[in-house]
Design a protein around this nucleic acid. Sequence first.
DNA 1: TATTTTAAAAATGTATACAAAAATACCCTT
DNA 2: AAGGGTATTTTTGTATACATTTTTAAAATA
Lengths: 208, 208
Amino acid sequence: MNICQKIKTDIIKNQLPRGKPLRQVTLSSRYGVSRIPIRDALLSLKAEGWLVPHGKAGVMIPALDWKEAEDLYLMRSYLEGLIFNMAFEHICPEDLLKARGFLMELDKEGVGLLERGKLNWSFHKALYQAANRPTLLQVIAGLNEQVVRYMGFQYGPLDYRHRSEYQHEILLNHIENKDKISAECLLKLHIEEAGVLLVDYLKSSEAR
Amino acid sequence: MNICQKIKTDIIKNQLPRGKPLRQVTLSSRYGVSRIPIRDALLSLKAEGWLVPHGKAGVMIPALDWKEAEDLYLMRSYLEGLIFNMAFEHICPEDLLKARGFLMELDKEGVGLLERGKLNWSFHKALYQAANRPTLLQVIAGLNEQVVRYMGFQYGPLDYRHRSEYQHEILLNHIENKDKISAECLLKLHIEEAGVLLVDYLKSSEAR
DNA sequence: TATTTTAAAAATGTATACAAAAATACCCTT
DNA sequence: AAGGGTATTTTTGTATACATTTTTAAAATA
């Protein structure tokens, strides 16, 4: 696990101060390396949106923002609907098999939130791959990566997880039945629902 | 002008070798600095998509790819249509004034291609700002930044520039007339047309 | 007391030097 | 001559040291 991943994990787990600048020396002693690899990591994370500039120098962890989350899920629904539409006719049994594999892993107990987020993306990606649109897929991957920043806490009702997995199941059934309209519709609603749930949670915790 | 910008400019102007790895020492002597700031720049550029990994270590300039361009313009049309729709009711006279300002600068002769690309984005951005959707706007800005990588050469018929500026004019008129449907429709076609022109050019130059 | 100036401190940016890893070229074997 | 393995060279990754910039706090002035 490289420094970038470690910092991401610590951001998600709220183990780094939000709002105030991250100091390179602090991080270098924290992770037991010199400032250079820390600088490398901070630069990459800044370019990826995990960190934002703080004044004229330094970076900080951006605040969680329901408006940002809303936009991310809006774009996800919009673009994933598009790529799924493009992929649909070309989804082969092997793709479905792969997707089912990820679904089974998601069903297991004791999977961490971060891991859960990755598996969820792997599931969706397995379906989109057939579209053969690398650049579109890459942008969508970026959006899903951004969403991970919001996965650090348990939000929404506890049974949402099962609801989400159920929707995944139904989605695969629609694909197998060649029911494109239902599948695309469900996919978009599935994403929108997750977004609404997250946004509502963020709004309510912001009000406090 | 920092190192990042210099490298971007050199990439656009085809003054750096494509396809083979960029060597840090080569670049550091080229730009007259040590390897550290070069490393910083390469990391940022890699995260932004200006460079891609080369094997297990090192980076290289990705080949221009009509399929990538096609996806970029598809997403632009899709997402800019969306944000424009959101912005429309809130576009104020000051926004239009700003847009007209950029349009006038675009009309001047002797403006470099890179500068032209930036002005074009400034024009569009002036209209989208009213949507008050920072995250959506940021993603769209990223797409426009990616498009800049393809602006290093004169493509399409020479009179496309005037055609594009004309479309900009009409777009502003539609907005002033509160004709939302025409405006949104024109905007999407305007972007799509630019995309098709670029993609066709790339395809034809690839065939050679 | 509030504001500005100025000096001290702390943090970032950069260069040089060294360690680890990767790529290359060479030689040996088959 | 082709393939594979090893030594050499090159390149990247990291640490340390220094320069520059930014921030902080204190002091002086209005």
